[in-house]
């Protein structure tokens, strides 16, 4: 971190030269980004559709939302942030000859946090169903189950991708194509985190 600050606060021109020397590059395959931004746009539309439905029944949405357990949502946010950070560390580890062997374990850590998210989600759904709450209960709960369910589906896809990443990280060398998949898979996992960062405040917190 000290070096970081030093670079940031060093006198201008030399820093710029250093920055400029670092080549700009696309992480993963270009196609991965079409998929990631396409997905992010689908969710953006869903955010708006949810809020548009809220406009016609703000009171109903507020009273249904009050029944949600915000702590589950907050715990899940932290789990995904920890998970994403493990992936960041794993990405750094595969770049370092001395630490490469640690990458698979870091990715397993990320996978376990993702799985824990799903466990919390199942407990949360079970609690709702126990209280007789289903997608048919109200508009709010229909959107709640669709939005969080679609996100959970992406998370399951992400867990499959992380499993592949663990196996790739175990290889002594990765081909160019394998490394591109590795980076793309990592970015997909970050997207799962990123979407939850909006979904949690939107569905659980904003009143």
């Amino acid at each position: 971190m000290t070096a970081d600050v030093e670079v940031e606060t060093s006198s201008g021109p030399a820093v710029l030269t250093e920055r400029e020397r670092r080549p700009r590059r696309v992480p993963g395959e270009e196609g991965t980004w079409i998929f990631i931004f396409g997905d992010m746009c689908v969710f953006a539309v869903l955010f708006c559709v949810f809020l548009e439905a809220r406009m016609s029944d703000a009171t109903g949405f507020a009273s249904d939302q009050a029944q949600l357990n915000q702590n589950f949502g907050a715990i899940n946010t932290v789990l995904l942030l920890v998970s994403s950070f493990f992936v960041v560390l794993a990405m750094r580890a595969v770049h370092s000859p001395a630490l490469r062997a640690r990458a698979p374990r870091l990715l397993v850590g990320a996978w376990l946090c993702g799985a824990a998210f799903l466990v919390v989600k199942v407990v949360e759904y079970a609690e709702k169903v126990d209280h007789g709450i289903t997608p048919q209960t109200s508009d709010f709960y229909m959107y709640y189950f669709v939005l969080t369910g679609l996100h959970a589906f992406h998370l399951i896809l992400g867990l499959v991708a992380l499993t592949v990443l663990v196996n790739l990280a175990k290889k002594p060398e990765m081909s160019k194509g394998q490394f591109a998949f590795f980076e793309g898979g990592a970015c997909f996992w970050h997207m799962v985190d990123l979407l939850w960062l909006v979904l949690f405040p939107l569905v659980f917190l904003a009143r």
């Binding site: 070096a3 970081d4 670079v7 560390l89 750094r92 770049h95």
Partner: peptide
């Protein structure tokens, strides 16, 4: 003037180096 790029992990040797970014 430092020439260390803290975000390049290629020089990381210890687990703590992974956190220096």
């Amino acid at each position: 003037m430092t020439t260390i790029n803290p975000d390049a992990a290629t020089d990381a040797r210890t687990p703590a180096d992974l956190l220096r970014s």
